[in-house]
């Protein structure tokens, strides 16, 4: 039972004010996005159309804490096909960013490690200007697992074969142990300060 008066009618504006969320209200609930989405074959509850409808109604809490938000591949299939140019891929990104802020503020709990990974990734960019795989892994795994030790174990588990394989092919040599840095690091810092998530 959805009681509309208990919902947040401003949620749609909140999303539309977020970059990428501008086209939310154009949606006419046609299902194109959902039916073409590759994820529906793996996550039966996954339904971008429904996330949109819930957002339109103002079901802020349900939407932001929906773990399905985090399985989107950003593959753009939905965006390419949406007849109303809703740009679902970007839109879900906008909703994820709102969710992330809420989680940071301790208001909701996100049941996905994806925000941790994305942030760890961005931290590498802010720091080095380029992706530093080791740095990313070192930040991501411990945060995901909740402790440094568990994190390292998980990382070992994921990487032991893979790392070896890469190493054998000369793709994970000693060079990869150190970050490749952009010379003009100051500008990276500025970019993230001005545009990045606060």
């Amino acid at each position: 039972m959805i009681k509309t008066w208990e919902l947040d009618p401003n949620f749609k504006e909140e999303i539309m004010n977020e970059r990428g969320g501008e086209h939310l209200t154009a949606c006419f609930q046609c299902s194109t996005c959902t039916l073409g989405c590759p994820i529906i074959d793996y996550v039966p509850t996954y339904n971008p159309r429904k996330i949109i409808q819930m957002s339109l109604l103002g079901m802020r809490k349900e939407v932001l804490s929906n773990p399905d938000l985090w399985v989107c591949l950003i593959c753009q299939t939905c965006t390419a096909r949406c007849p109303q140019d809703v740009r679902i891929s970007d839109l879900l990104g906008a909703i994820r960013r709102i969710a992330d802020k809420e989680a940071e503020a301790g208001k909701i709990k996100i049941e996905s490690s994806r925000p941790i990974f994305d942030k760890a990734f961005q931290h590498q960019l802010a720091k080095y200007g380029r992706l530093y795989d080791m740095g990313l892994a070192k930040e991501y795994y411990p945060k995901r697992e909740g402790s440094f030790f568990k994190g390292m174990m998980a990382m070992m588990n994921d990487y032991k074969d893979f790392g070896m394989r890469m190493f054998k092919k000369g793709k994970m040599g000693p060079k990869a142990m150190f970050p490749e840095k952009v010379k003009d690091l100051a500008v990276m810092k500025k970019i993230f300060e001005e545009m990045g998530e606060k």
Binding site: R19, G20, F121, Q122, G129, L131, V182, F192, M195
Partner: peptide, 15 residues
């Protein structure tokens, strides 16, 4: 001195 494009992990379009 190119920098990372943001890959798929930077979601904010303006960033």
């Amino acid at each position: 001195d190119w920098n990372c494009c943001g890959a798929a992990e930077v979601e904010d379009p303006e960033l």
